[in-house]
């Protein structure tokens, strides 16, 4: 098990967007999050990746060979009166409040893409991928200023890693074009490649097939499958294309009105009367 979501609750004003959402993502699996529009899928994503702070509930990332991470904690929790008696904890909380946020989630090993593509449009494709690797390069500030040998080597390695991913996504010929000038389908792939450059354990894809034609969708499904096979990546995806979801996923979670109404294998979900009523129709 890689990610444990427990009792997630999120309220926007008077709207209860998420109510006691709970599910688990197994390491190395492909898990799909489906449901009608407005069911709260993207809200779940935003809670997991730290862009929203859930008002209640727990999010634990438990990688097999690394210490577990409490995702709620690293986003910065509000202070409570008990902090008065536990100054050490309070200081830690303050630290996360000042320096925590979605970037910490990424550093913990969760990468994501966005429903409406968010590339750095005025930068080249390759630069997009290099930005994603800044963590691996950041320690070399002084070396970078003087263009030292170690810095050059690291930079070249980052460059080659980026080129490897571009090769994998069949985009190497576009490496030096501005990202904003690529066709839509390519932009989607660049965004996934960029997320992969952060070396994630869990990749969250928000409607990766939206706007793709059937050919591209097929190619995408092969890419996702081979990511799972080749580098044992765990994938969580939101998708409306049921063909893709049923073909790919090992586990499906169905959301409706902010609640999990069913979860299980594709076969079980297809038979589930509640899901058929609420979504599949």
């Amino acid at each position: 098990m890689l990610l444990r979501v427990e009792n997630l609750k999120m309220r926007f004003g008077g709207v209860l967007a998420l109510n006691n959402v709970a599910f688990q993502v197994q390491a190395g699996s492909i898990t799909a999050l489906i449901g009608p529009n407005g069911a709260g899928k993207t809200t779940v994503f935003n809670c997991i990746t730290g862009f929203y702070q859930a008002q209640q509930g727990q999010l634990h990332l438990t990688p097999p060979n690394r210490p577990a991470v409490n995702l709620i904690q690293i986003l910065g929790q509000p202070f409570t009166w008990t902090d008065l008696f536990q100054p050490r904890q309070a200081i830690k909380k303050w630290g996360y409040k000042m320096f925590g946020g979605p970037h910490m989630v990424c550093r913990a090993g969760i990468a994501r893409t966005f429903q409406n593509i968010r590339l750095f449009k005025e930068m080249t494709v390759l630069e997009n991928l290099l930005v994603a690797q800044h963590r691996q390069l950041n320690g070399r500030f002084i070396g970078g200023l003087f263009n030292s040998k170690t810095f050059c080597n690291e930079e070249n390695m980052a460059l080659n890693r980026a080129m490897d991913w571009l090769d994998f996504f069949d985009l190497a010929h576009e490496a030096n074009r501005l990202a904003g000038q690529l066709p839509y389908g390519h932009q989607r792939r660049v965004e996934i490649a960029r997320a992969l450059c952060t070396n994630p354990m869990l990749l969250c894809l928000d409607e990766p097939a939206a706007g793709l034609n059937p050919m591209e969708t097929k190619a995408l499904s092969q890419i996702i499958r081979s990511l799972q096979k080749k580098i044992q990546l765990t994938i969580l995806l939101i998708e409306h294309d049921m063909g893709l979801v049923m073909e790919l996923s090992d586990h499906i979670v169905v959301l409706d009105h902010g609640e999990v109404i069913a979860q299980g294998t594709p076969a079980a979900i297809q038979q589930n009367p509640r899901v058929v009523e609420a979504y599949l129709g």
């Binding site: 990746t49 730290g50 862009f51 320096f99 946020g101 979605p102 970037h103 910490m104 990424c106 550093r107 990468a111 994501r112 966005f114 968010r118 590339l119 750095f120 449009k121 005025e122 930068m123 630069e127 997009n128 290099l130 930005v131 994603a132 690797q133 800044h134 963590r135 390069l137 950041n138 500030f141 970078g144 200023l145 003087f146 263009n147 960029r194 997320a195 952060t198």
Partner: peptide, 28 residues
Amino acid sequence: RLKHMPLGRSWEALREDEIACRSLGINH
């Protein structure tokens, strides 16, 4: 030099899209 370093690239990335930057682990 900074323009060709990770820091400079992060600046430009922040100019382009702050949310994407944060999703890539950059502390904005």
